[in-house]
Design a protein around this nucleic acid. Structure first.
Lengths: 243, 243
DNA sequence: GCATGATTTGCGGGTTCCCGCAGGACGTGA
DNA sequence: TCACGTCCTGCGGGAACCCGCAAATCATGC
């Protein structure tokens, strides 16, 4: 049984190594890697079946790494171990887990015991273990609260990338008005108004929406990075679009 | 000699505690705190003269904490210990150090020995110690490269907050055209064009500028948070503005 | 089948944005 | 003093954005 650890912080990495060895005495090898790109390569060459991964890494973040790992081997069991439960991360993870895959999401603030249990449940019992706090965020997205629907989240990403309404319409194969419609819903959900009955303190809704999404952690830099990469890919695939 | 440690990650905090005790055997007390707000309070009540602080903390980040600490006691010696050298952080720190204050900026990736030296230099010798990589970022801002001037950075923040041109003009006491002028410079510096010679892939410059600033780490969520707080303060000070 | 609600699309218009052109204010150096 | 560069400001116009009104489509459930 091989376990691959992908974590770019040295202290956390060694702590995690100890935790894995302690929780799973039956495992005979623990590999450690310090960034997402190496993680993908190692997972491929080791045929790793078990992975513990940080989400926020500089070189290539955990979500992207997990996506390619799962693409090549959908039965890989991955335990995400992250500092934050930003909606952007939670949503990013949910978006990429393959049908029927088993995974876990544990916060770094969890106790040693919780981490131990999660490791055993996910790797040995094939049980999904989602931190209660993370679970809360997931639910909020589904329920009717101020959670965004998928359509709204998608358009939020496009706006955050700086695309025009028309560009979004082309990309998503929608009419211009539909895009603007969704934008209106988005503004409403985020509680963004022009606001200035008076002279000052007026907002540009599209920019303001990105700002409050950022402040509320619905969006974060790494989500924007992923979206940007997707956009660039898309542009290079279809000729005649990239300028 | 009292040293106050402000760091929200438990592993890092204990590592830092050990490092401080090892580097400064002459110090007789080390206090540890796990978030920025508590850090401010402790610093005040302990009359702390020496502080080691993380920048990225959830409750209240290091820059804000340092700002209030320095405001009350400008001769406090602060060593920042951070994961990243994002331009946003570097600029944020430079912006708040009082005249003649001594401080340091060390990356978490630095060796034990570098940390030890920095602790001794800053606290005992009153020498500023700035990590070479961080130094590079600082320079880039000043030299003519694609670094932004202060005026451009300011307007970038305002745009990122979602203000309209007119609102920015009021806020900064400038004419509308001047604001738009600075925006043009900003777009140029960031290399943002309308870009779409063809049908698709057109950009909304103001939103795109925020996106690339985010991707290039010129901006980050915590910088936006600080700006937002300033904005809210300003609105509540001057009546008749906040709606 | 039919009512209800959510989505999509078109049209029209008021507002804001983006920017070229051009004139004025300020500082620096020859 | 004059020339030059940089910054601020006004004007005007084309494009993009924001949105109310309204019709058409689709899904769901009674």
């Amino acid at each position: 049984m091989n376990v691959l650890i992908v974590e770019d912080d040295a202290l956390h990495r060694s702590y995690l190594g100890d935790a894995v060895r302690a929780a799973l005495p039956e495992c005979n090898a623990v590999m450690e890697t310090d960034n997402g790109r190496l993680g993908e390569i190692q997972a491929r060459s080791l045929q790793a079946e078990f992975v513990v991964m940080d989400l926020q890494m500089s070189e290539r973040n955990g979500i992207e790494a997990a996506r390619t790992i799962w693409r090549e081997r959908p039965d890989t069991k991955i335990l995400f171990w992250s500092n934050y439960s930003d909606e952007a991360y939670v949503r990013g993870v949910s978006r990429i887990v393959p049908e029927g895959a088993t995974y876990g999401y544990v916060l770094k603030s969890a106790s040693d015991e919780r981490l131990r249990l999660a490791l055993r449940s996910v790797f040995l019992e094939s049980q999904c273990v989602i931190d209660r706090e993370v679970r809360g965020i997931q639910q909020k997205g589904l329920s009717s609260g101020h959670g965004l629907t998928d359509a709204e989240y998608e358009i939020l990403l496009d706006v955050a990338l700086g695309l025009t309404d028309k560009a979004i319409a082309n990309r998503k194969k929608l009419s211009l008005r539909t895009v603007q419609n969704r934008l209106q819903h988005l503004y409403e959900k985020l509680g963004v108004h022009q606001d200035g009955g008076d002279v000052d303190s007026r907002f540009n809704l599209r920019a303001r929406a990105v700002a409050v999404a950022l402040l509320r952690r619905v969006l974060n830099a790494s989500a924007v990075e992923r979206a940007e990469r997707d956009l660039q890919d898309e542009l290079s695939w279809c000729p005649g679009k990239g300028r």
